[in-house]
Design a protein around this nucleic acid. Structure first.
Length: 235
DNA sequence: TCATTAACTGTCG
DNA sequence: CGACAGTTAATGA
């Protein structure tokens, strides 16, 4: 990891929290204090149990956030891309991160310290309000995930994940634009690598998806969606 | 070329 | 559905 400090004004992440509030005059002083660094693929930059060090914003790249279970198995909690925020769960409350985060590809991150974040939140109501809406939305997603893990079987959870990354990261040349190992797919779907591989092979046989190396392409979104339809809505 | 890693398959409890 | 063993294919030192 090395230090640089690109300026937010030239950043192309229009959906970044910082970028979206850059038009506010008060914001200008704070962006000068951020620390930008590069995290190489498969390296982690937040360790579970480490002291909280402010908030991270992804400038470019992709990141997974994980929680380690009792048996040493990893549960992927969230997949994030450029413009997303990481570390917000423990921010302001505890002293330690309850999650770990590592790069899925070479990633550029911007870090704002606890002190800087505190000042921003106290001085810029527009920012604070937007962050609150973001928290509410994240909580909602998280509750939905609990329901999914409880009620869906392995095949449905893998299908759900595939549709999710298809929507979030998009497809290029018919392949989803993210590289997840089969183990990582399993960690997200809450199952083992072998089970995830089986589901993927079966979906391939059914001509619903295709694979090229690690990458996966979705061939039939509506069909896959109908498989998990009953879980998507409340009755 | 050999060694390591990841994807995949079969089978058992 | 998870765990273990074993095969195959790709990668890279």
């Amino acid at each position: 990891m090395k230090d640089e400090n690109p300026v937010c004004d030239t950043c192309s992440n229009e959906n970044c929290f910082i970028k979206r509030h850059l038009h506010l005059p008060k914001m200008q002083q704070y962006i000068l204090r951020k620390q930008t660094f590069i995290c190489k693929k498969s390296n982690s930059f937040i360790k579970e149990g480490a002291l909280i060090k402010g908030l991270y914003f992804i400038c470019s790249g992709k990141v997974k956030t994980i929680k380690t279970g009792i048996n040493g198995r990893e549960q992927i909690v969230r997949l994030t891309k450029n413009g997303d925020t990481i570390g917000f769960r423990g921010f302001g409350t505890g002293k330690k991160y309850l999650i770990g985060a590592s790069a899925l590809e070479d990633t550029v991150l911007c870090n704002f310290s606890n002190e800087t974040m505190l000042e921003i939140l106290q001085n810029i109501p527009e920012f604070t309000y937007a962050l609150m809406l973001f928290y509410a939305d994240e909580l909602n997603k998280s509750e939905n995930n609990i329901r999914k893990i409880a009620h869906m079987n392995v095949r449905e959870r893998v299908v759900d994940l595939l549709l999710y990354i298809h929507r979030k990261f998009g497809q290029i040349d018919g392949l989803i634009d993210i590289e997840l190992s089969r183990k990582e797919i399993a960690d997200f779907a809450g199952t083992t690598e072998e089970q995830a591989i089986r589901v993927i092979s079966n979906l391939k046989k059914d001509m619903l998806i295709k694979t090229v190396g690690k990458k996966i392409g979705i061939l039939a979104v509506p069909e896959l969606r109908s498989e998990i339809m009953e879980h998507k809505y409340f009755k």
